[in-house]
Design a protein around this nucleic acid. Structure first.
Lengths: 190, 190
DNA sequence: ATGGTTTGTTGAACTTGTTCAACCCTATTA
DNA sequence: TAATAGGGTTGAACAAGTTCAACAAACCAT
């Protein structure tokens, strides 16, 4: 059952009753995504917030020179969205693409607003999730500044070995902020 | 009045009644900080969340090689804390130092928890603030990957000219993730 | 099976950024 | 006034990472 995973994920952040859990989950709808399919492309507005049940996604930006910059990968038990575009319904700078056959639970903005209004525990849940996310992004920035490419690579494959296995080297290099050629050279010298 | 600035800041995020505003503000206490003084040093636990009324702070990490990596600067109207350490009362990896004579409003963790419990609008306020912060950190990461040091420097001084004026080049270079010597060379060639 | 596309690898030349040392300037303090 | 500490600058040698081009291997789609 896809909702079981979502419920467990929620409980990691906030303790709540089974009825609250079910109430929240009802607003999420399961959808299947084909390999290569885009859930969002930059320039459009992000109309959903998603929770990954199965598969793998890549969230990335393409800059003016055509370089693909990966913000993060989302696998089972990860959340997925352009938080800025979703909140403010502004044009997104991100692309969200399935790297394999995937399944997610999504909620649209209207339903999300309803959820916030109906239950204050939902505010708390997403407040805590967002605060944890801020901490994680701060740590990522410090690592990016403090570590060399080779160390960032080691950190990534050690911290997320199951994700690394699903990815090509080109995808990993886009996450590390280096060229795929240089990643290849890093791997050789060790 | 320091509380006026805090109230305006809150209203930028969530609309609320004057009585709610006052209720929240009561939990914040003004403190003065001397130039050079540390509000937090890595290894300790962050016991406060702060809102800057006057002055300037530098939030940075010192890595194993002694290199200072600046996460951000906080001036008037900015928030200030180690969100991870404050939430979970874990050892902090950050230092928070006043760069000049400053004034802030602080709330400790117990009072923050009380606030959350007393009023659900507080959950909403910090939920929205945190979500905006996530968006900002994501954009920062993309800029750090996509832009060269010179472009990051231009972006910083153009986006935060009033902050840049308060800082030495060494402090700016720590924020950009480059050495101060290289920043000096960047500035010359233009 | 075949042709086309994408991926990983490697080398050489190049650009970006670092390190270290020296120097100057300014502000502070004894 | 002298001493000192910190900030900015510069140059030379070096390290890290990019670019471009070439090629081999794997992975499709038909």
């Amino acid at each position: 059952m896809p909702y079981q995973l979502l419920q467990e994920n929620i409980l990691k952040n906030v303790k709540m009753s089974p009825s609250d859990l079910e109430f929240i989950c009802k607003y999420f709808k399961p959808i299947s995504v084909n390999k290569g399919e885009f859930l969002l492309q930059q320039g459009n507005i992000c109309k959903f917030e998603g929770f990954v049940v199965k598969g793998c996604f890549r969230i990335f930006n393409i800059d003016t020179e055509g370089k693909e910059n990966t913000l993060y990968f989302a696998v089972k038990d990860w959340w997925l969205m352009d938080i800025d575009s979703f909140m403010n319904q502004t044009s997104s700078e991100l692309n969200i693409q399935a790297l394999e056959e995937s399944q997610i639970l999504i909620i649209d903005r209207t339903n999300k607003e309803t959820l916030y209004k109906e239950s204050s525990i939902v505010e708390k849940l997403f407040r805590i999730m967002s605060q944890k996310a801020v901490a994680a992004w701060q740590r990522r920035l410090i690592r990016n500044h403090g570590l060399k490419a080779k160390e960032r690579y080691s950190y990534f494959v050690n911290t997320y070995p199951e994700i690394a296995l699903k990815l090509t080297d080109r995808q990993i290099s886009g996450y590390l902020g280096i060229t795929h050629e240089f990643l290849s050279k890093i791997k050789r010298k060790n």
